[in-house]
Amino acid sequence: MSNDKAVLAYTLRLADNTLILAQRMVELVAAEPELEEELANANFALDYIGQARMLYSYAGELEGKGRSEDDFAFMRDEHEFANLLLVEQPNGHFGDALIRQFLFDAFYVHQLEALARCSDARFREFAARAVKEVRYHLRHCSQWLVRLGDGTQFSHDRVQTSLDDAWRYTGEMFASDETDRAVQDCINGPDLEEIRPLWRRDVEEVISRATLSVPSDDWMASGGKQGRHSEYLGYLLAEMQYLQRSFPGASW
């Protein structure tokens, strides 16, 4: 794989993670249990959409075929999306959505910190800005996790189940492939083997404060980064892309 191609593929992975997670969070707009949490969720979703836009426009420049942010977001099919399986999982209840974001952000923070030190100036600029947003998301999710885990027996049990269910999607974050390795080599990109113990340390620290147990590393699902998705992504895209597919180029 040529270096340019790897950087482009990697940019799309980053962008797809943020866009798909944002779309899941947008589904919760007007459905959060409290007004204050409603605002927080919508703010966070907009942070991710902002990040996705920066990344898609960079991807368009790297590719050089004139594709816009909207083309990447709305005119690609399921197998062309390279987001982690974790972020496309359905919202479920409040605890499920929280765990999904917590596990992802705990990884993403370190991925961004590594990107802030890489040799690609655009990635550095992007990461320096995004990491501040994501650090706050992680703080907020961690606070909630501690309250649910260390709350009532009912909330403890429910969020433990959420954690157990989502755990199988965490292995994929650290399964490095050709693209990850090429980005590591050619632009001094994130080393997933370096991030894994940092992620583990951070996640375990919060899980233990939340009086929850760390699930065992059994079978791990993978394939999202290579475009092989769970059954849920197609429905998500159908809803997200409907307008642009029906009325191509529609704008307001």
């Binding site: 409290e34 007004l35 204050e36 949490e37 605002l39 927080a40 703010n43 706050y136 703080r139 907020h140 606070q143 909630w144 309250r147």
Partner: peptide
């Protein structure tokens, strides 16, 4: 003002409600 389950969450909610 904001509603919050405890002091620390009140700070988060204040941040997300009033300093956007």
């Amino acid at each position: 003002s904001v509603h919050a389950p405890d002091d620390q969450m009140a700070l988060d909610h204040a941040r997300d409600t009033y300093t956007r």
